[in-house]
Structure formats: structure tokens, C-alpha cells
Design a protein around this nucleic acid. Structure first.
Lengths: 151, 151
DNA sequence: CGGAATCCGATAAGATACTG
DNA sequence: CAGTATCTTATCGGATTCCG
């Protein structure tokens, strides 16, 4: 057994947990020796969607309580660069998760607001939070005993 | 507006949807002009966890109906290389999501099986599937009208 | 204020070949 | 069969600078 870490993670103090949904194509083979209904309930889609990237769920959380401006998002999402925030917001706007409203003023003012579709994501996100609340300690304990047993 | 795609995605026919939970640190600032209870219910954790990578959820689906061997996972997860499958399985084993049982035979036989903890992830995963089932068409329509309006 | 442009580094993941 | 080893690539996100 080599010491190669399988997943690397940065350890920081005082962080919180967020939960999001990732949807993407799964590319399961038809010839698989598995129940062909394994993915029943997951509708086929041509273009995979990713809402499980680093920022999308956090942005949704930030907008949960109401519309916010660019800077009002940038501040709580500390560390996000304008480029990444812009890209995330554009993608979410494109997917109908939020709206972007620019007022023609000086200085400029742009307001982002969740759509109903974007707000609907809170439901599965909360399911993820609920899982964390219930099972995360078990996972952390498993991880601890692994480091204790394997080193 | 440049034509730079915000999120790139490969478009394939005949793929299905999968949904998984991502948990990671969110690094929200304390000084944010936001409801400090924004993340209420998301317990703090020192080591971020990612179960939203490309393969974890699919592996859980593959194991949902019972234990399977390495090759029996590799086949339905077409395209996964042994290296990546091994890394994913090791990480999941470390986190207590599945067990690895190696039988001392020739040829070797190794069986992977979900733990209760791993199986518990099906719940939030299904919540994500349910969201897809209900709202994915709305998202796709939003995306389509975006391409129609912007180009 | 709300971005855009450019450059750069880390990491996940794929391709390929080999082995007990 | 169940991996390991090595190399390469792609993508994401971060840092920095500049602009209307």
C-alpha cells in the first residue's frame, strides 16, 4: 500500500457544510450485468448539467433570503474572484436559476435574484444538509479509524 | 458579450441522469451582510468531504442492488480506468461507505459492498433524482432560449 | 460598481502498459 | 482477476491588472 492520498482536502478551521446536487451524464453501459432499471427515475438527457461545482450552491444560499448585488455576493463568498463569480452567475442565469437585472445608473447597479427554478433546488440541497447532519459524524469516525489502522 | 462558454459539457446521446451530494467547506465570511443563520443546519466540519465527484454516486448506484466485484463495477461504469476506479473505491472505503473483501484465491476475487452509511446516501441522491425528474425540462428550456436569444 | 482580459497553478481524470 | 505505474490532458479555479 503506497501512501498516495486518494482524495486531497484542505483542512480549515471554522468552516461549515454545504450540500448541493450534481447532475451529469453517467454513461452506464447497456451491456452491464446490472439491473437495467438501476437508473430508473433518472430521465435521459443529452447535455449534462453541473450544479455541484464549488460555488453554485453557495450562491443559491446567499440568494435564499432575497435579491443581492454583485458585491453583496462577493463579500460572503470570501475568496471568490470576480471572474469566477461572473462565470458562475452567467451559467446560473443561462440555466434559469436566477435573473440578472442591471440598472442604468452611475455607479452601476446589478441585482441578482433567484427564480422559482433556482429556489426549487433548495429542496434537494436541504436533503443533503439533512444527510450531513445525521451521518457526517459516522463518516468522520470511519475516516479517523482508517488513518489509525492503515498508516 | 463574448462567446466564451461558462461551463463546457460533452453532449452524448442516450445518457442518463445521476444525482449526488457534494459536501465541502464553504468558507463564508463572518462579516457577510447576510443572515448569519444562512447555513443553519449545516454542521461545521474541519475536513471537507467530496462525494460529488464523477464516480462516487454511480458506484453507489451500481452497488445498490448488492455486492459486486471489481470487474462487475468496471463494466457498467464504462470508460472508467482501473486506476480511477481503484482510487474511488479506496476513498469510499476510507469514508466508510463500502467494504472491500478480498478472497485469497487464484484468480483473485474481491467483492465490494455498501455499508449502511453508504446506503444512506441513496436518500439525498434520490432527492436529487426527484428534482431532475420534476425540473430538468424547465432548466433545459431555459438553456435553449438562452442560446436562441444571446448568440 | 461591476465587471473583462490575461496568465497561471492544482487536481481530477483519461490513455497506456505492465504484473502477481 | 484485480489491480499498479507512469504519463498526459483537460478543466476549474485563483491572482492580478485594467476599464466604462
Amino acid at each position: 500500500m503506497t501512501g498516495t492520498p486518494v482524495t486531497t482536502q484542505t483542512v480549515e478551521a471554522g468552516t461549515s457544510l454545504s450540500a448541493t446536487i450534481v447532475t451529469y451524464d453517467d454513461g452506464m453501459a447497456d451491456s452491464a450485468p446490472l439491473d437495467p432499471d438501476m437508473f430508473t427515475g433518472c430521465p435521459p438527457v443529452a447535455a449534462p448539467i453541473r450544479i455541484g461545482d464549488k460555488w453554485t450552491a453557495k450562491i443559491i444560499r446567499c440568494l435564499e433570503s432575497g435579491p443581492r448585488r454583485f458585491t453583496e455576493l462577493q463579500t460572503p463568498l470570501r475568496g471568490i474572484t470576480p471572474k469566477v463569480l461572473t462565470a458562475s452567475l452567467r451559467a446560473m442565469e443561462r440555466d434559469g436559476l436566477l435573473t440578472r437585472t442591471a440598472y442604468d445608473e452611475i455607479p452601476p447597479r446589478v441585482v441578482y435574484e433567484l427564480t422559482d427554478l433556482g429556489r426549487s433546488l433548495l429542496e434537494p440541497m436541504n436533503a443533503g444538509c439533512e444527510w450531513s447532519r445525521r451521518h457526517l459524524d459516522a463518516l468522520m469516525r470511519a475516516r479517523d479509524s482508517w488513518s489509525a489502522a492503515v498508516p
